[in-house]
Simulated scan of single mutants.
Amino acid sequence: MIALDTNVVLRFLVQDDPPQSARAVAFFASLSVEQPAYLCREVIVDLVQVLERNYRLSRAEIAAAIDGLLAARELVVESREMVGQAVEHYRQGGPGFLDQMIVVGARRAGCRSVVTFDRQAGMTPHSG
């Protein structure tokens, strides 16, 4: 199995660099259930931040892109269920995706709440 870096996933999704995008598309086309690629949580968090900051995509657009990655049987997504929960909360508003991942991870670990100085994260109904 081969792990993916953010820049390859980004080129595949946004198609903004023709040579790199073509290589990313070809790479994704070569994947299969038997020969998948690995996508770690950190890459997904980085991808969301880049899509927000550099590409100014809406939460709905970003959530749809992450949904597509989660649905791809040719990808082994680290903590797929956790990422899915975080992206659903992110889609609904409130704290950013990274904060949603922290909250979902804390809940899975059995934590009642997350102690934070981030007022928005502390006020969300998703923070426990």
Rank of each mutant, 00 (worst) to 15 (best):
S79T: 11
V33W: 12
V103G: 00
T116M: 00
G122F: 00
V114Q: 00
F117V: 03
E34W: 07
V33L: 14
E52K: 14
C40I: 07
D99L: 01
E61N: 09
A22E: 09
V103I: 06
R107C: 01
F12W: 15
E61V: 13
L98N: 10
G110P: 02
D16F: 06
R59K: 06
E42I: 14
P125I: 07
Y90V: 04
V33K: 11
A29G: 06
Y38G: 02
D99H: 02
V103N: 00
A60E: 15
V103H: 01
L39D: 03
L39A: 03
I44V: 14
Q85Y: 06
V103D: 00
A86S: 05
P19S: 15
R80S: 12
A26E: 15
S127T: 09
Q120A: 14
F28W: 07
E78V: 06
G128R: 07
F117I: 04
L70P: 06
P36C: 12
A86E: 01
E81Y: 08
P36A: 09
R11N: 08
R112G: 14
H89M: 15
D17L: 10
P95L: 08
R73Y: 07
V45T: 13
D67N: 10
Q35M: 06
A65I: 06
V76I: 14
E81D: 10
G84I: 03
V14P: 00
R23Q: 15
I2M: 15
T124K: 04
G128Y: 04
P18G: 09
P125M: 10
F27C: 11
R119L: 03
E88T: 14
I102L: 00
L70V: 11
D46S: 14
E78K: 08
V48G: 02
N54V: 11
L47T: 02
Q92F: 06
H126E: 12
G110N: 03
A22Q: 15
A60Y: 07
G94N: 08
A29E: 14
A26I: 05
